[in-house]
Amino acid sequence: MTDVPEPDISPELFAVLAADPLAAQLGITLEQVSPGYARATMTVGPAHLNAAGTAHGGATMALLDVVHAAVSNSHGTLAVAQDVHTEFLAPGRPGDLLTAVGTEVHRSARTAVYRIEATAGDGRLVATALARVFRLGTPWALPGDDEVVAMGAPPPVPPTMQISAVETPLPTPGPGTNPSGPTPAPDELQ
Protein backbone atom coordinates (compact mmCIF):
# COMPACT_ATOMS: atom_id res chain seq x y z
CA MET A 1 0.00 0.00 0.00
CA THR A 2 1.40 3.42 -0.93
CA ASP A 3 1.16 6.54 1.16
CA VAL A 4 -1.26 9.05 -0.29
CA PRO A 5 0.04 12.61 0.20
CA GLU A 6 -2.23 15.08 1.93
CA PRO A 7 -3.92 17.51 -0.46
CA ASP A 8 -2.72 21.09 -0.47
CA ILE A 9 -4.62 23.55 1.71
CA SER A 10 -7.35 25.77 0.25
CA PRO A 11 -6.18 28.48 -2.15
CA GLU A 12 -7.71 31.09 0.19
CA LEU A 13 -5.67 29.96 3.22
CA PHE A 14 -2.54 29.64 1.07
CA ALA A 15 -3.01 33.23 -0.18
CA VAL A 16 -3.31 34.54 3.39
CA LEU A 17 -0.21 32.62 4.56
CA ALA A 18 1.79 33.68 1.48
CA ALA A 19 0.94 37.39 2.01
CA ASP A 20 3.80 37.96 4.44
CA PRO A 21 5.40 41.42 3.93
CA LEU A 22 8.76 40.45 5.48
CA ALA A 23 8.92 37.34 3.29
CA ALA A 24 8.27 39.53 0.24
CA GLN A 25 11.01 41.96 1.31
CA LEU A 26 13.52 39.13 1.70
CA GLY A 27 12.56 37.37 -1.53
CA ILE A 28 11.13 34.34 0.28
CA THR A 29 8.61 32.41 -1.81
CA LEU A 30 6.12 30.10 -0.12
CA GLU A 31 5.83 27.22 -2.60
CA GLN A 32 3.63 24.55 -1.03
CA VAL A 33 1.49 24.05 2.06
CA SER A 34 -0.51 20.98 2.97
CA PRO A 35 -1.71 19.90 6.43
CA GLY A 36 1.44 19.40 8.52
CA TYR A 37 3.84 20.38 5.72
CA ALA A 38 5.24 23.59 4.19
CA ARG A 39 8.07 24.51 1.81
CA ALA A 40 9.59 27.88 0.88
CA THR A 41 12.71 29.12 -0.93
CA MET A 42 15.05 32.10 -0.81
CA THR A 43 18.05 32.91 -3.01
CA VAL A 44 20.94 34.35 -0.98
CA GLY A 45 21.60 37.78 -2.45
CA PRO A 46 23.68 40.82 -1.44
CA ALA A 47 21.02 42.09 1.00
CA HIS A 48 21.09 38.72 2.85
CA LEU A 49 24.82 38.72 3.66
CA ASN A 50 26.59 39.27 6.97
CA ALA A 51 29.98 40.94 7.43
CA ALA A 52 31.74 37.64 6.66
CA GLY A 53 30.09 37.44 3.24
CA THR A 54 27.77 34.50 4.01
CA ALA A 55 24.03 34.33 4.60
CA HIS A 56 23.11 36.33 7.69
CA GLY A 57 21.63 34.18 10.45
CA GLY A 58 18.66 36.54 10.63
CA ALA A 59 17.86 36.04 6.94
CA THR A 60 18.19 32.26 7.26
CA MET A 61 16.06 32.30 10.41
CA ALA A 62 13.44 34.41 8.60
CA LEU A 63 13.19 31.68 5.94
CA LEU A 64 12.74 29.04 8.66
CA ASP A 65 10.17 31.22 10.43
CA VAL A 66 8.07 31.77 7.28
CA VAL A 67 7.89 27.99 6.89
CA HIS A 68 7.13 27.62 10.62
CA ALA A 69 4.22 30.05 10.31
CA ALA A 70 2.84 28.26 7.25
CA VAL A 71 3.14 24.69 8.55
CA SER A 72 1.77 25.56 12.00
CA ASN A 73 -1.27 27.26 10.50
CA SER A 74 -1.79 24.61 7.79
CA HIS A 75 -4.72 23.00 9.59
CA GLY A 76 -6.71 26.24 9.41
CA THR A 77 -6.43 27.00 13.15
CA LEU A 78 -4.63 30.18 14.17
CA ALA A 79 -1.27 29.31 15.78
CA VAL A 80 1.32 31.62 17.32
CA ALA A 81 4.99 30.85 17.96
CA GLN A 82 6.11 30.07 21.51
CA ASP A 83 9.65 28.88 20.92
CA VAL A 84 12.05 28.31 18.04
CA HIS A 85 15.42 26.68 18.61
CA THR A 86 17.71 27.03 15.61
CA GLU A 87 21.04 25.38 14.83
CA PHE A 88 23.17 26.92 12.06
CA LEU A 89 25.17 24.08 10.51
CA ALA A 90 26.81 25.40 7.33
CA PRO A 91 27.07 28.82 5.73
CA GLY A 92 24.61 29.86 3.07
CA ARG A 93 26.70 31.30 0.25
CA PRO A 94 25.93 34.12 -2.16
CA GLY A 95 23.75 32.77 -4.95
CA ASP A 96 22.60 29.69 -2.99
CA LEU A 97 18.96 28.76 -3.41
CA LEU A 98 17.94 27.79 0.12
CA THR A 99 14.91 25.53 0.45
CA ALA A 100 13.24 25.20 3.83
CA VAL A 101 10.84 22.34 4.56
CA GLY A 102 8.72 22.14 7.69
CA THR A 103 6.99 19.00 8.96
CA GLU A 104 4.72 18.39 11.89
CA VAL A 105 6.26 16.34 14.71
CA HIS A 106 3.37 16.50 17.19
CA ARG A 107 0.01 18.31 17.41
CA SER A 108 -2.56 18.49 20.17
CA ALA A 109 -5.61 20.72 20.60
CA ARG A 110 -3.50 23.55 22.07
CA THR A 111 0.17 23.05 21.12
CA ALA A 112 2.18 21.67 18.24
CA VAL A 113 5.85 21.02 17.44
CA TYR A 114 7.51 21.30 14.02
CA ARG A 115 10.92 20.49 12.54
CA ILE A 116 12.14 22.86 9.84
CA GLU A 117 15.30 22.27 7.77
CA ALA A 118 16.97 24.59 5.26
CA THR A 119 19.22 23.08 2.61
CA ALA A 120 21.27 24.62 -0.19
CA GLY A 121 20.94 23.48 -3.79
CA ASP A 122 24.05 21.30 -3.45
CA GLY A 123 22.49 19.36 -0.56
CA ARG A 124 24.29 21.12 2.33
CA LEU A 125 22.12 21.27 5.44
CA VAL A 126 22.42 24.97 6.32
CA ALA A 127 20.13 25.19 9.36
CA THR A 128 17.61 23.20 11.32
CA ALA A 129 14.99 24.31 13.82
CA LEU A 130 12.63 22.73 16.32
CA ALA A 131 9.68 25.04 16.87
CA ARG A 132 6.61 25.06 19.11
CA VAL A 133 3.35 26.96 18.75
CA PHE A 134 0.28 27.65 20.83
CA ARG A 135 -2.90 26.89 18.89
CA LEU A 136 -5.52 29.53 19.76
CA GLY A 137 -8.47 27.33 18.79
CA THR A 138 -9.66 30.08 16.44
CA PRO A 139 -10.26 29.06 12.85
CA TRP A 140 -8.77 31.33 10.24
CA ALA A 141 -11.48 33.58 8.83
CA LEU A 142 -10.72 33.80 5.14
CA PRO A 143 -11.87 36.20 2.45
CA GLY A 144 -15.38 35.19 1.49
CA ASP A 145 -16.21 33.79 4.93
CA ASP A 146 -19.42 35.17 6.42
CA GLU A 147 -17.89 35.70 9.86
CA VAL A 148 -15.78 38.66 10.92
CA VAL A 149 -12.15 38.28 9.88
CA ALA A 150 -10.19 37.28 13.00
CA MET A 151 -6.84 37.61 11.32
CA GLY A 152 -6.36 38.92 7.82
CA ALA A 153 -3.40 39.56 5.61
CA PRO A 154 -1.19 42.34 6.94
CA PRO A 155 -1.19 45.69 5.15
CA PRO A 156 1.35 46.21 2.37
CA VAL A 157 4.74 47.61 3.34
CA PRO A 158 5.20 51.26 2.37
CA PRO A 159 7.93 51.78 -0.26
CA THR A 160 9.96 53.79 2.25
CA MET A 161 10.39 50.65 4.40
CA GLN A 162 11.38 48.29 1.61
CA ILE A 163 14.81 46.68 1.66
CA SER A 164 17.00 47.47 -1.31
CA ALA A 165 20.23 45.85 -2.41
CA VAL A 166 23.46 47.49 -1.34
CA GLU A 167 24.69 49.46 -4.34
CA THR A 168 28.12 50.47 -3.09
CA PRO A 169 30.55 48.15 -1.33
CA LEU A 170 30.96 48.60 2.40
CA PRO A 171 34.25 50.16 3.49
CA THR A 172 37.07 47.75 4.27
CA PRO A 173 38.21 47.98 7.90
CA GLY A 174 41.68 49.43 8.36
CA PRO A 175 44.56 47.94 10.31
CA GLY A 176 43.94 47.44 14.00
CA THR A 177 40.18 47.05 13.69
CA ASN A 178 40.19 43.26 14.07
CA PRO A 179 42.48 42.10 16.89
CA SER A 180 42.33 38.47 15.79
CA GLY A 181 43.66 39.22 12.31
CA PRO A 182 42.00 39.47 8.90
CA THR A 183 38.55 38.04 8.35
CA PRO A 184 38.78 34.70 6.50
CA ALA A 185 37.16 34.35 3.09
CA PRO A 186 33.66 32.80 3.16
CA ASP A 187 35.06 29.50 1.79
CA GLU A 188 37.28 29.17 4.88
CA LEU A 189 34.37 29.48 7.34
CA GLN A 190 33.23 25.90 6.92
Rank of each mutant, 00 (worst) to 15 (best):
A131I: 02
T111K: 11
P173F: 01
L170M: 15
D122E: 06
G137H: 07
G174N: 05
E117D: 10
D122V: 01
V149L: 13
A120S: 11
L170E: 15
A129D: 00
A141W: 07
T172K: 12
P169N: 09
G121N: 09
P173Y: 06
G121K: 08
L130H: 09
G144W: 03
A127F: 04
P169M: 06
G123H: 07
Y114M: 03
R115F: 00
T160K: 15
P154S: 14
D145R: 07
L130W: 03
G144I: 03
V166M: 15
I116W: 00
L125D: 09
T168G: 13
R110W: 08
S164N: 14
D122R: 04
L170G: 13
G121F: 02
L125C: 10
T138W: 13
L125F: 04
V149D: 11
L125N: 09
E117F: 06
S164E: 15
A153N: 05
R124Y: 02
P169G: 05
L130F: 06
D122G: 00
P159S: 12
T128G: 04
A153W: 05
A131W: 02
V113E: 03
W140C: 03
D145V: 07
D145T: 09
T172W: 10
P175G: 08
V157Q: 14
R110M: 10
S164A: 15
A153S: 12
P139S: 08
T172S: 12
A150R: 14
P171D: 06
R132A: 06
G137E: 01
M161Q: 15
P155W: 08
A120Y: 07
Y114S: 02
F134I: 10
V126A: 05
T172H: 10
P139E: 08
M151G: 05
T172N: 11
P175R: 11
V157F: 13
A120I: 05
P143F: 05
L130Y: 01
P158M: 10
L142F: 10
I116T: 04
P175E: 13
D145K: 08
P155S: 13
R115H: 05
P139N: 02
T160S: 15
A127T: 01
R110A: 12
G123D: 06
V148R: 15
G123Q: 01
T168K: 14
P171E: 03
G152K: 04
D122M: 08
P159Y: 10
A112P: 02
T119F: 00
T119K: 06
D146H: 14
L125A: 10
V149S: 12
V133L: 04
V149A: 13
W140M: 01
P158Q: 07
A150F: 13
F134L: 12
P139V: 02
T111L: 11
R132F: 02
A129E: 02
E147H: 14
Y114E: 01
A127D: 03
A129R: 02
M151W: 09
P173R: 09
P175L: 11
G121A: 13
R115N: 06
T168W: 12
T168D: 14
V126H: 01
R132P: 05
P173I: 03
P173N: 06
E167D: 14
E167L: 12
R135H: 09
